[in-house]
Design a protein around this nucleic acid. Sequence first.
DNA 1: CCTTGGCACTCATATCAGGCGAGTGCCAGC
DNA 2: GCTGGCACTCGCCTGATATGAGTGCCAAGG
Lengths: 337, 337
Amino acid sequence: MQDDRKIAVLRAIVEDYVATEEPVGSRALVERHGLGVSPATVRNDMAALEEEGFITQPHTSAGRVPTDKGYRLFVDRLTGLKPMSAAEKRAIATILDGAVDLDDVVQRSVRLLAQLTRQVAVVQYPTLSRSTVRHVELVALTSNRLLLILILSTGRVEQRIVELEKSIDDAELGDLRSRLNVAAAGKVIAEAATALRAAVPERDGAAMAALVDTLVEAFSDHRSDERIAVGGAANLARFGESFDTAVRPLLEALEEHVVLLKLLGEAHTGGAITVRIGAEGPYRELASTSVISTGYGPADESLATLGVVGPTRMDYPGSMAAVRAVARYVSRILDQA
Amino acid sequence: MQDDRKIAVLRAIVEDYVATEEPVGSRALVERHGLGVSPATVRNDMAALEEEGFITQPHTSAGRVPTDKGYRLFVDRLTGLKPMSAAEKRAIATILDGAVDLDDVVQRSVRLLAQLTRQVAVVQYPTLSRSTVRHVELVALTSNRLLLILILSTGRVEQRIVELEKSIDDAELGDLRSRLNVAAAGKVIAEAATALRAAVPERDGAAMAALVDTLVEAFSDHRSDERIAVGGAANLARFGESFDTAVRPLLEALEEHVVLLKLLGEAHTGGAITVRIGAEGPYRELASTSVISTGYGPADESLATLGVVGPTRMDYPGSMAAVRAVARYVSRILDQA
DNA sequence: CCTTGGCACTCATATCAGGCGAGTGCCAGC
DNA sequence: GCTGGCACTCGCCTGATATGAGTGCCAAGG
C-alpha cells in the first residue's frame, strides 16, 4: 500500500468535508478528485486511515469524517498556504493603512480577519509588559484625583484614575511629571516602575512616597494586559447545526477574555503560525473548535497575538494564510508608528 | 364585558408566554393565575383580544401568543417595574464602584446589564459632542507626527495620531499646547475647535494654520462618537429555537455598531425608558427583537444611551428595571468623576 | 501484492397513517 | 354576562415501512 495515496485520500476527505459539511463517501471522493483509482481501492485506504485514527464514521453506514488527529496530519502535511489573491492583498493594505490610531488598527484588523476567514477573529492589544514608555502625562482632575496617562511605544494609550491621600498643587504636579518622564521614558513598564521609585528620594516625605506607590501600582496593574478585541461573531451563525456543541460554548468563551487569551496562547516567535485543533486545546467545552494564531509586532518581535477561532471543520490553509497576512501587515504598520 | 379583565388576561398571557415560551391556553391561564373565572369566560375574552389584534394563535388549535401590539399594550399598562432585590442593588453598587476609569465603567456596566437581564447589553460611550474638554495634551511621536490626546469631562480619553506637513520643535509644541488648553478647556468640542482657530492668529504662518486645521479635523472626527460596548452575546444561545429569525440577524446587527446606535435611538431625557417592540424598530430583519433603552449621564443630562436588546418575548418589567437601575448608577458615578 | 467489480448488509432518514390530546368555538342554561 | 358541556380541529407523537447511500468483504484480474 502506498502511503502517498492514503495521505491524498485524507486530504481529499478533509477538503470535501470542509466544503460540504457532510460525511464523504468513497464514490463521491473519486468523482470530485481525480484520484485515478476505483472507489473500492479508496475504501481500503479509508479502512486503514480509520484503523489509524485519522477518520471515523458517524454512523455505521455513513461516509467518513476527519478526526482531530486527521486534521492535525492534514495541517502538518500542508504543502503551502492558500496564497492571498491580489484583491485581498489590496484590501488588507488599504483598510489597515486608513487607521488613525492603535485602537483603530486593532479594530480594523479584527474586522478584516473576520471577513477574510469568515470566522471569529481575535486580536490582542500589544502587551504592556513588552512595550516601552514613550511619555507619561499627569492631569489633575480635582485636587486629589489624578488622571495618569501612559503613552507606549506601540501607540497604545493607557489611562488610570488615581486617588491621592493628600492633595497636590500644580508645582508639585509639574515636578512629578517631569521626574516621571525622565525616569520612565524608553523603559519597559516594570523597569519604569522601579526607576520611578528611585527617582523620588526619601526626603520628599511619606505623602509623596505614598503617591508614588499608587502610581507604581497603577502602572503595574496587569488587568489591562488582557485587552483584546473580538469580531465576526456573526459568522457563528453560519453553522447552526452543531449549535449546542460548538456555537454555544464558543459564544460563552468570547465573553471571557481571559479564556480567549489562554486560547490564543503564547505568541510563537519567528512568525510561526500555531494551530490548535479541537481537544488539543485546554478547554474541553471547546473540543470542537480550533484556534489559529500567530504573534505580531514590529520586526516580528511578537508584542501580542492575533488569530481566529472556529469549528475544527474549517478551511485551514485559507485561514492560516489570512492570519499570517494580517499579522504581517499589522506588524508593518506598528513598525512605522 | 369588563375591559379590566381583558387587560388582566392579556397580562397573564404575556407573563406565561414569556415564562414558558409556549402558546398559552385558557385552562392553564385560570389555573396559574387566580383569575376567578372559568376557562370559557377567558376564551371569550381571548377571542375579543384576538379580534383587536393583541394576540394570535400560531395554529388553529393552539394556545395564544401575544402580538407586538399585545406586548405594547402590556408595557404601556405596566403598573410598575419589578423592583431590584437588595442583593442586586448591592451587586450593582459594588461592581460599578470598583471601576478605575471610564473604559472600565462602561465595560462593567455592559457585563452587569447582561447578567441582570440575561440579554444582550449595549452601552454607548458618552458622546464627545456633548462633553466638555478638560485637558488637551500633545505628544511628539516623531518630529512630524503628533499624538493628540483629549481628556473630556466624562473621563473619556480620545487619542488621534496627527501627521504634520512640517516638523515642529519643542518650543512651538509647548506654545501650541498651552494655547490649545486655554482655548479649549471647559468647552464643548465644537466650540473648542472654533476657539482654537481664533487662538492661532494669521501671523503665525500658513504651516501653523495647516497644523491647526489638522487638529481641528482630528477634534471633530465623529467616527468615534459611535463607540459602544456590547456584552452578553452568549445569552443569545439560550433561545436556540427561532435561530434564523431572531438570533442570526441580531448577531449580525451586533457587529454593526452603527446599526446598534440607531437601535438604541435618541436618548430620551428625564430618565424615561424607551421600549421598542419588534417591528416598531427601523430594521425589518429585527422584527422579532425588542430594544429597551434609556439615557444616562451626570444629573440625568443624557450624555449617551444604554440598554438591552432581546427577543420580543422578553421579561419587560424586569429588564426595564435593570436598565433603569444601571443607568442611574452609571450616572451617579459619572457625577463623581 | 495491489486493485477492482460485485454483492450482501447496515442503518440513518424520509414518508405515511393512525391516534392522542390540547385547545377552541359555540350554545344553552343559569 | 358567566359557565359547563360538547363537538370539532389540527399539530404532533408514534410506529411501521421504504429507500438508498455507503460500507466490508471476497474472489478475480493485472
